[in-house]
Design a protein around this nucleic acid. Sequence first.
RNA 1: GGCCCGGUAGGCUAAUGGUAGACCGCCUCGUUUACACCGAGAUGGCGGAGGUUCGAUUCCUCCUCGGGCCACCA
Length: 785
Amino acid sequence: MAKEKKKGYDFLEVEAKIRNMWQKEKTFKFDPSKKKVYSIDTPPPTISGNMHIGHAFSYSQQDFIARFRRMFQGVFYPFGTDDNGLPTERLVERLKKVKSTGMSRAAFIDLCLKTISEERGTFIDGWKQLGISADYDICYSTIDENSRRISQKYFIDLYKKGEIYKDEFPTLWCPECQTAIAQAELEDKEFPSKFSTLKFGLVGNEKTLPIATTRPELLPACVAIFVHPEDERFKSFVGKKAVVPLFGQEVSIIADKSADPEKGTGILMICSYGDKFDVDAIQRHTLVPRIVFDKDGTATYKGYEGLKIKEARKKVLENLEKAGLVTETKDITHAVNVHDKCGCEIEFLPTPQWFIKIIDKKKKFIDQGNKIKWYPEYMHKRYDNWVNGLEWDWNISRSRHFGIPLPVWECKECGEIILPEEKELPIDPLQTEKKCPKCNKPAKPEEMVLDTWATSSLSPKLASSLVGDKIDLPYSLRPQAHDIIRTWAFYTIVRAHLHENKMPWEEIMISGNVSLKGEKMSKSKGNVIDPKEVLEKYGADPLRFWAAGSTLGNDLDYMEEDLITGKKTVNKLWNASKFVFMNLEDFNGKAPKKLEKIDEIFLTKVGITLEKITRHFEKYEYSKARAEFDQFFWKDFCDNYLEIVKKRVYHGEGDKRKSSQYALYNGLLVLLKTIAPIMPFVTEEIYQTYYLKKEKIKSIHLCDWPKPEFMEQKRLDQVYLGQEFTGVLEQIRKEKTKAQKSMNSEVKISLEKSIIEELAALLDDLKDVTNAKEIVEGDFGVEFL
RNA sequence: GGCCCGGUAGGCUAAUGGUAGACCGCCUCGUUUACACCGAGAUGGCGGAGGUUCGAUUCCUCCUCGGGCCACCA
């Protein structure tokens, strides 16, 4: 065999080569003819320039499973990108230096689509470099024509089933993005604020009522005052009218149990709309709302026109103070709901919106969640908590340029809702005229687009549509991170239930996030790690090795040391394999007549390790699989077994040599296969270099997962014997170290009679590995020669 | 305020109702027919209080600290 004078392992060169090979050979192409298919509902990342380290982390973890499963059965592992919605708009605005608001919808959409197609290739390259073994030919974008068609089709399906309705209702509104949003898009943020106690007047009474608020700018929107029916202080005012300070409107004082006498001054003002409590209160008492802010968050009331909410707040407060209507002001910090995409404080605004009915099915969604196996289990709780805490139906309409249009027209005359035919999809109502079938008048196209989750929640359908809908629900696995349980996981469960009355997947695997020194990574903190740089410096295998280091569901701190460890492992694998095959030139692949005892023990232990790793992977415990491999590979295989058989493969003859060759060849192959899901590049390179000729299967990743075929009933005895052997070996090594001698210094060993008898079949190996000239009976001792 | 996760060697982390196991680092020593991206060895640890138990790092309760989710946002 040609001995290449390779100085070590050149990961850049190897990884590029292997990557090309996989691509050329279509190694990971989905084969629909396979009977048992393991289907993965791959998360579609949002195109955002480059892959970030969090992607590298979680996609590696999915890929461990995909590669593991592929060694048992067919794997459906599609790829997709989620590029519809605000993040994409932002990206395009940034890259192209445009403002979506300054363009027509059609022009902006064109620009978005163009930008996406420009960015898409490089973006997906990141995943390929990482060695993600998806079938990239099965690839969707949530904005492409096919996805638009499917998304609209299922919208129509739900509408026809009566699960979608349109309503004008005060909804969560982002004044910055100028769109309605869903409950799932809320985030908490701490803000400093002023908590002021104001004097409300009373009609026909000299007294004033103290009311505390952080939002004086909503005074003109005040429509009622609540006091608790049993609050002795204010009971007598119920039924009377109060006068709003500064703005003068008279509002009713209403008894309502929701007014907590302990909170603030015990009196509560109801405004349209300060929070969702106001929304509820106004509905319950059928009050007439007074809307005082516009969609862009500017005031519309006299004296304050055009002021932003916060400016108005400041000015109203100043004027109140000037008028002596403020009795107390405290500086406080409180958490308010903000939009997760822009961090802007959300408001409530009554606008017509489209909703999917979910509130009436909370119990059903809990049931559905119970049918899915959650890994790790406790993540299930997060789902339940979210579902139990839901307060609104799912608002799926967004007032944005870029997105999948709601496929709807509305008759101006009779309000009839007009839907397109399925064959017309995808359709943009703004580009197509429709007439009302009832009154034959032109209908008004819906201008809003769908919430991006309304499309990504159909990801199983989007992917399956690319292979002729051959993959049915439920999929085998949904891998995703925990931060989108309340959105992606929940909404997908909702859609699968509403459309098909099925679970979307049998199992869900939730991974954690990447942090740096315990802090969440974010661009604003400047503590981001670029996976490209990591890949260049260490390679994909070490990066994946690192990603395999956290137990499932746990966040993982990025530490460069772990990459170094991974790189060492890659190198060690390469060198150990090189050593093995240096001594296998004359190996014919056949088992010897009789295996040497120590070789048998070694293979037994390989089998035990294999069983453990298999169980770990089956339960998505890739970190335990890695740890198990590490332990065995470094200690048992390299430091012990290779040292033990060294002399035998160098100088041994006949079956003795064959036995070690057989054990080395097969043991190493099993080990390589068990770590191949985590470190696909080195293992493939070793396989291609040394094993391909005999093994025939064209890639290690297409081989069958090994079976522990070397294990016999005697395995416990063997393990015991192996332990005895290593115990003695350790003692001898310790003596050598103590004496500051080298490990291969020549010695004479004395061992107790019982041990000699026990290890009878292994004494030659003990001599080899310790370089002992002689082993004699006696008290334990090591004599240096 | 509710719920969830976690507190284990200097750092990061694993297992476990009965002498707590790796990895990185530190210290000592060794090494060239796979590998200095090496080997042999040494050092060093269960947040606090109570309870269950023959025995608790492990199970329970409380406290405390860190992280997350939700609620509160008069």
